[in-house]
Amino acid sequence: MKTFLAMTKRNIKVFFKDKGMFFASLITPLLLLILYATFLAKVYKDSFNSALPDFISVSEKLVNGTVAGELFSSILAVCCVTVAFCSNTLMAADKVSGARKDLFITPVKKSVIALSYYVGTLLTTLIVIAVAMGACFIYIAVNGWFLTFGDVMLLILDVFLLSLFGTAFSCIINSFLKTQGQISAVGTVISAGYGFICGAYMPISNFGSGLQKTLSLLPGTYGTSLIRNHALRGVFAEMTKENFPPEVIEGIKDSVDCNIKFFGRAVSISAMYAIICASIAVLIGVYVLINVLDKKAD
């Protein structure tokens, strides 16, 4: 246990002392927030207003709150995974530097080292995500706060689960990386691509039905939807209070992926949690298996 704690501490220290690694992780969510707030917020707002029937009048605060909730969910859904990948570059960097070899010539079990990478990455990811989440909450508070304490708690839970998911995913992928070039390439692909396939950059409802079905097979989709549901729950409650027709609210929910369908069947919130938890368990299992089967240090 002492060895595990010492190695986890070492991984966290290396992450925070390696300024490149730390700032690359931190800059992703902050950059996304700035880009969303600067460019996309207006697009989302216009698109929301134009989609509403003419007979419905909506307060500016409610529109802004809706857009802010959508941005909040998009940014955090992406960052829980991309930040995990940035934080976890140490795992591959240790192979490049030879540090991994130094760890493996000791009596400590490989599983302890593997677990320390996982926990170290998870903690650093959570720290960076907490900063991003704080910034996002401030953004929501400025634009239109409709969240309850329960919503905030559920959002923290969602982000925690998605970070567990992202960390396990990054551990598996990084297990196979051996060069600096591969680390950079994977980081770029994940940063550029994950936001699209999880429905963060663009709601999945905008895609064709074939692609929608394919994306519904990916667990990250449900992580995004969970965050979005909880980030917008207060907004929808306010819409109900302001006598929005239920079909209009459902239409908005469909358009922003709060209602997700798996091959035509609606997926409930509890089912989404089950999918994410099962995915985390499977990914950690695969990671353990990779380490058990790996007979040599790289």
Binding site: K2, T3, A6, M7, K9, R10, K13, V14, K17, D18, S97, G98, A99, K101, D102, L103, T106, P107, V108
Partner: peptide
């Protein structure tokens, strides 16, 4: 093969822990 970004002390303590 030690960690370049850590101090000498941190490096030695973390490696010592690998031997308990």
């Amino acid at each position: 093969v030690l960690d370049g970004v850590l101090t000498v002390k941190d490096n030695l303590y973390s490696r010592a822990s690998l031997y308990g």
